[in-house]
Write a protein that binds this DNA or RNA. Structure first.
Lengths: 223, 223
DNA sequence: TAGATTGTTAATCGATTAACAATC
DNA sequence: TAGATTGTTAATCGATTAACAATC
């Protein structure tokens, strides 16, 4: 029952469902109702049923949802299993953290190469990956057609690098540069992870919470 | 004209405004209309005026907005300048990337300490910060009352650590663990940066885009 | 069977967009 | 002054919630 256009809000809840289902599965549960799942996630049962019904009839009246099978359905919707390929562009600290510690396999992504311009980084080994010189990027893009570029370059070169990637057929950019990309080809999908934005939002809510409190109370954080 | 409850959507656009204004300012502009700003950001002028009017009358009829002063207002709303304090809990690769390369000052946050349990990490120097043993965390929390904890510990210890932080008066958690926190004290503000969720969303949209294409077309990424 | 819980339709709520009088 | 552009009110659109018949 896959409906035409599915809203971004719905899509962004799917990974959370996945996580929760994994958790419940690990805790030994095999079935779950929209009521219980909703309570666990702070969502209404209605919303969960509405969300899932965008993609199909995964439940069963009187029973609920089978956790393993629902997990499989969502994993499928999120295209885990497509073996999308990715290249890491820029192996500074964040890039390094990703290369070393991020489980791409968990998202069904295959990281095939990493690139940097800095001589001291080129040649470094991460798992089964050796950082290549940025000169080699063009060839890899043209020959292996990776789907995703993980953009971890400096802010200064962010847009230039993005344009280059798009020109060479990259389909999606996972953007860690904290720069708003203005890439020409508009049919490239950009997913931003703007650290600063996120921190500022936290800062806002913290200050909201402290509104009304006196300076003395504020300096005394504790409850 | 600050209205009662401001929606999360509005709040999450503020950092983007800030970034765009900085950019325009750097490019030498001093004023901007909602029309031009909207075009630059892919938003409607209406939405921008609506957003800003939640917080005050920052514009001027017939003129638009003064970039510098609007920037200041937004920075103020986001509480940049409150000198919120933060501690980094867990100095693995992501924690390290933050300690070394993230500009906390840009968000008006002061990083006062970093902690880890691993002996090989304790004592490491980052800028003017020396990683302390996790044993020392409790005392710092109780004595210096930091506002924010940047949670970069392992998934296994995420919730346990979060509970500890909350018990010791932490007001906000910037959560990098990719674990849904279930901290007891519900009046703590949690801002999540779930890498995997973000990547899965990208994966979804990529697969959507490729729907309808043949396998052959798909294997031939290029335009 | 009776109870539970789905998928879906309808109602409500909230967010975005459009329109326009006010005014710089 | 005339033109531009705001802040705000009203209209529209979309997302969430509620209700309920279908059915396991």
């Amino acid at each position: 029952m896959r409906k035409g256009k599915i809203s971004d809000n719905v899509i962004r809840r799917l990974p959370r469902y996945l996580r929760k289902l994994d958790e419940m599965s690990a805790d030994g549960y095999t079935r779950i109702s929209s009521k219980v799942l909703g309570d666990a996630m702070g969502l209404t049962p209605s919303q969960i049923r509405q969300d899932l019904s965008c993609f199909g009839d995964f439940g069963q009246q009187g029973y609920g949802y089978n956790i393993a099978s629902l997990r499989g359905e969502i994993a499928n919707i999120l295209a885990i299993n497509r073996r999308l390929t990715a290249v890491l562009v820029g192996v500074g600290n964040i890039g390094q953290a990703l290369a070393e510690h991020f489980s791409f396999a968990l998202s069904g992504i295959q990281l095939i190469d990493a690139f940097d311009i800095r001589p001291e980084v080129v040649g470094t080994q991460f798992g089964n990956l050796t950082v290549k010189n940025a000169d080699a990027l063009e060839q890899v893009l043209d020959e292996r057609h990776p789907d995703i570029a993980i953009l971890c370059v400096s802010q200064e070169s962010a847009n230039e690098t993005a344009d280059f990637l798009v020109d060479h057929g990259i389909l999606g950019i996972w953007n860690f540069t904290n720069v708003e990309l203005t890439q020409k080809a508009k049919n490239v999908i950009v997913e931003n992870l703007h650290f600063t934005d996120s921190l500022l939002v936290l800062s806002y809510y913290l200050s909201e919470k402290q509104k009304g409190k006196t300076a003395a109370e504020r300096s005394q954080n504790q409850q």
